[in-house]
Each structure stands twice: as structure tokens, then as C-alpha cells.
Design a protein around this nucleic acid. Structure first.
Lengths: 133, 133
DNA sequence: TTAGATGCAAAAGATTTGCATTATG
DNA sequence: CATAATGCAAATCTTTTGCATCTAA
């Protein structure tokens, strides 16, 4: 709690009810704006989707939230993790699971093989979850 | 040429002028529908964007084309390659470069660590290209 | 008080769908 | 000739923008 408030105010931003509610509904599981919006609705908290978009964009900038893009063309957001991890997405039901892997060697190889100055990467796995197998 | 025609007809589909033109403008570099459309326009070939979308979707199904999603929310398409490869995307200008890496070990680790039946994966690197460095 | 934040309406942009028409096999 | 493919218009869906109003600091 104090964390975000500090991060916000240190950049001249404000802590507001909507931001607090949105933050409270973030998770270490990735969620879409629609999902977050639904969660808030269920809690009888009325926040415009636009506000959710703007808040998440800001949280991403502040390093509070991490954004990922999957094939279905919608963005998903999750609490930024201290530890870098990856996702496994079910081809059938869309369920997303986190997975931890040590890809140091691969990143090093990429840096060596590419003419680009590589700064980050995304690694996602696809398959079938237990239920859909 | 004969390749796609066979793949198409084997599934009851037809080889048409638009499909041939679209195929001829595909590349091993990923391109968006807008880019493909522009290329065709320059060649004075008039094909509706809708047709490009439908054709690409079909080519993907037939394994002729590979679709990738980047953060800017648009899909890019490239000729499906015999050899599995990855992309390096410039954070500044969006330039995309292909890169080959051997990630067998990593995939094996993912299969071991996950409860999912993993079938495929996506690996993309981000950074700055030579020009933007 | 005063700049930042919100909500509503509307715009924007990519992709999809419906349907009448055309053209391939 | 039967059916798949195309083009056009319009719909969808996610995300963004403009602007008047509100509110935290």
C-alpha cells in the first residue's frame, strides 16, 4: 500500500480511490482489463474502463505492473514480480500459469548472435492444461 | 508455387489470383496485413484487406505461414520456416530481425516444471537495432 | 487553490462477419 | 454447375483521446 503511494507521489502523481481499488485487484496472475473491470463490478466498485487503462499504463511506467500480449490480441496485466518468470497458456481454455526458468545461457547466446543491443525478452509456452488434456 | 496449390487443393480449397499474389508477397521477414496490402497496391494489384486476412488465416492453418503478435497489437505474418527461429524487435523503430537459437534445453525444462502438456513456444527479444543504438 | 484524475462520449485502429457477386475446378 | 472465394459495407472489439468536472495534496 505505502509502496505505490510513495512511488506515485515521488513522481508527482496522486493516490486515489480508483487506483487503490485497481491495485487491490491486481494479482500475480495476469488479467485483462475486462477481467479487472468485472472483478470491480462484483465488488460494487464503479470504475470506468478508461480509468483502468490509464491506471495500468501508469503502473507499468512506475514498474508496479507488468503487461503482456498474447495471441488473442488483448493485453494482460499482473503485479510486477521481483523474479523474472514466464507464462504457459492453454491453447484450449486460455488458462495462464506462471513458470520459472533459467534462460541466462539463451539470452547470452542471443546477444552474441544478434546485431541488436538486446535489452529484454519474452518467452511464452503454449499447450494444454490438465483439464483440457 | 506447386506447393501451395497442392496444399490448398488437398483440403478442397482453390488457387486463385489473389492467393497467388499474396503468397508471392510473403517473405521470411514478418509483415503486417497493412504492409502486405501496401506492397500489392504498389504493384497495382487490387486486393481487399479482408481477402488478405482471410487468405493469411487459411495459410496459417495450412502451415504455409506463421503468425506472430507483437506488443503493438498487430499481427505479423511470414513464410513458415522449416527451421524454428525467433525475433529481435527494435524498441525504437520496430525493425524486426530473425535470430536462430537452440532452446531445446529450456523447452525440456519447461515441460518438466509445468503441469501443462507443452506443445509450442514463442521467444522474442527486444532492444535497439544498430541504427537506433 | 490547482494540477492531476475521473467519467462519459466518441474516435481510432485492427480484425471479423454478412451477403450478394464472381470465378475456380 | 456447384461451391469456394472475393469485395464491399458494416459490425466488433480493444484501446485511446478530448473535454468538462471533480478531487487529492
Amino acid at each position: 500500500m505505502i509502496l505505490i503511494k510513495e512511488k506515485l507521489s515521488s513522481q508527482g502523481y496522486r493516490m486515489t480511490k480508483p487506483r487503490q481499488a485497481i491495485f487491490a485487484n491486481l494479482d500475480h496472475e495476469p488479467q485483462s482489463v475486462a477481467e479487472i473491470s468485472d472483478r470491480l463490478k462484483k465488488q460494487k466498485i464503479k470504475i470506468d474502463k478508461v480509468t483502468i487503462y490509464r491506471t495500468l499504463t501508469q503502473f507499468v511506467k512506475l514498474g508496479i505492473v507488468e503487461e503482456t500480449q498474447f495471441k488473442d490480441k488483448i493485453s494482460v496485466y499482473e503485479l510486477a514480480d521481483q523474479e523474472h518468470h514466464h507464462h504457459v497458456i492453454c491453447d484450449n481454455c486460455g488458462k495462464i500459469e506462471d513458470i520459472c526458468l533459467d534462460e541466462k545461457i539463451l539470452v547470452a547466446a542471443a546477444k552474441k548472435n544478434s546485431s541488436f543491443k538486446i535489452k529484454s525478452h519474452h518467452l511464452e509456452f503454449f499447450g494444454l492444461c490438465k483439464k483440457c488434456c
